[in-house]
Design a protein around this nucleic acid. Structure first.
Lengths: 361, 361
DNA sequence: AAATAAAATGTGACCGTTCACAAAAATAAT
DNA sequence: ATTATTTTTGTGAACGGTCACATTTTATTT
């Protein structure tokens, strides 16, 4: 931890090359007005002295930076994917991404992080926090001297944003369930503070109603597996007649399936489960998860393009979603069939018990 | 996107309050040598003008910053948890966390990100990239004017780091499997470029050897569910006699279980599966995953404490790990028992087929 | 009331760049 | 050879703060 060598500046390079600091600056910003002879001299000095320009000074002087700020939420698989994908596209565009994490989902917290970025001359900020329309608009107005782009806010919110169509996937999902003969469904919704949770919930309810499916109950979780687990436990305890559960994200869906498994309820034979997001791992749950795909890489690509395109027109970009049908959803069984199946299930259970006895001896 | 109001500086505040800029600076750094009267005057001016200090200028002048840089890898659940936990503790310490993502795992890539941070006067950097000992040491020596702390590198690597004991969890795991009567095991290892993958693999092999368990095969994955799936597929195709699979992380383990399920191989009755990491979701796989717990929050807490404690002694902090026994591991069956179970399995399969027929009609 | 000490405030230089302009050198035109 | 033009290089100020010191004001002591 020695600082033996004082930090080397542009002036040191200039002195070493026998020119003025301005000429060094010209070389760094590869201005054309510098003779090859001096350019070479300076470049040699730069490598010899291992000179690295001070970004702080550059930004302070230029009053801008080539950084794009990203305000993300903690945890959640989706947030990781967003960070990694945004980073990729930002680097491709010769910019750099700096990420801050919002400790809570409040307007104040995000506002503080924006101020932090601004005071570092970061004037392009992408925000992935599920803010209400009012909050998003407030932030937008307050910080109208910089470019702010939101991810996943309400498509109808008049701010610069890249979101997903909230209804096409939901419509496809419910058509799918209806075609399979389901009548009585339960919902596991996201937390009420999250705008995307509220939108997903509202859309599901609307589409279910217009398709004459009965919503027997709605339980909210916090996006985690664990909360999906307890939500499903509660649902099957209180409602014996549901045949499908619509879940607001994949992780809660996986938790729900675990709960059903623990209660010896077969998925999809007894109850179908549908997730939302199509996270990478949803294909590997048992059974594999029927879910709504959100094309996150595309969203990130567009977000980076938009925030860098100074004269990009149009506020919202709304991306389509699509239903991915896997094994967690299947035909709804009539109760008659269900009875015969129940007899078989009894045989199965007896054999299983026998097997367990053997195993444990 | 108007910049109607020119950015307000310390000088504007000073003029507005009728004092010199230095006095404003004193108030901001709450120096004691300023009368209450002027302090109030200045504070009023600050709020009236909505003045926000320019971090860039502060850092340039002070030649230091209150930011801690974090170089993380993309994707992976563990990386998200690290970001969120580090962020929490860094904020508690009144610092700020800025995250950069390494696009690849090369020395050069990390080196470039360190230079970026340094040129922003960020002189405390936490690195979560699975670098080899040589690379970690190289970086450490090259950048000995700043504090660098590594996560998850080799505990014996003489750098400032917070890692997990690579053997205690492995020893417990293998004792567990041996106690259950397992003899022939397969390994699903992480990618060879990753130092932690190599260490986990080596330790497993050593401990297995000293316990006289047979390693029938080793297949490498890339930490993803998908790679665990194909690894397991390959293993059961080529080796009929294994009764347990040791997997280097939870996600690959979940993929492996999905593969076994597809091949109608029961977990844990036919094959036991053990993961590594104890990611939040591993408790909700079916069956729930036996795995080695890494206390990530503790690791982050210690990392932040260490990097901020200027005279923290000792290079490595090595944290203990522990085996979490869930349902994916169980008794190894002798082949005699296995036969009787197979007859039962035939009954089960016939009934299941009958059931499926009913379901699909 | 004068001398002294302490507290409050102001001034100039600096951190490491970029920018607008001025000066010098090299090249082209008369 | 002289002037006009272009190219190359150098200078001073700025970006928005902090620091060390000088100066002024206020409080304390004799």
């Amino acid at each position: 931890m020695t600082d033996k060598t004082k930090k080397v500046t542009m002036h040191d390079v200039a002195k070493h090359a026998g020119v003025s600091y301005q000429t060094v600056s010209r070389v760094l910003n590869n201005s054309c007005n510098v003779s090859n002879q001096t350019r070479e001299k300076i470049e040699k000095a730069i490598t010899q002295l291992k000179y690295v320009p001070n970004v702080l000074a550059q930004q302070l002087s230029k009053q801008t930076s080539n950084y794009i700020g990203f305000i993300n939420v903690g945890y959640s698989l989706a947030s990781t994917v967003l960070s990694a994908e945004l980073n990729k596209y930002v680097l491709e565009a010769k910019y750099k991404l700096v990420i801050s994490i919002a400790n809570d989902l409040s307007l104040e917290c995000v506002d503080k992080l924006i101020l932090d970025f601004k005071s570092q001359c970061i004037d392009k900020i992408i925000i992935n926090v599920p803010l209400s329309n009012e909050d998003a608009i407030t932030l937008n107005q307050k910080h109208d001297d910089i470019r702010i782009l939101f991810l996943d806010v309400d498509p109808f919110c008049p701010v610069f944003n890249v979101t997903f169509n909230p209804s096409d996937g939901a419509v496809a999902t419910i058509k799918h369930l209806k075609d399979l003969g389901h009548k009585n469904v339960a919902l596991i919704a996201g937390p009420d503070i999250s705008i995307s949770a509220r939108i997903r919930n509202k859309v599901y309810l609307d589409v279910l109603a217009s398709n004459n499916l009965n919503v027997k109950t709605i339980v909210s979780g916090d996006w985690s597996c664990e909360s999906g687990f307890s939500a499903a436990m509660q649902i099957v305890y209180e409602h014996k007649d549901i045949t499908a559960i619509l879940v607001a994200n994949d992780q809660m869906a996986i938790g729900a399936i675990a709960a059903l498994n623990e209660r010896q309820i077969a998925v999809p034979q007894d109850i179908s489960v549908v997730g939302y997001d199509n996270t990478v791992d949803s294909a590997y749950s048992i059974p594999s998860l029927t879910t709504v795909n959100l094309n996150r890489p595309l969203q990130c690509k567009i977000a980076v393009d938009k925030i860098l395109d100074e004269n990009s027109s149009g506020m919202s970009t709304v991306l389509p979603t699509e239903l991915i049908i896997r094994k967690s959803s299947d035909k709804c069984l009539s109760s008659i069939k269900k009875d015969s199946i129940q007899t078989i299930d009894t045989i199965l259970e007896l054999s299983n018990n026998l097997k367990s006895m053997l195993l444990n001896k």
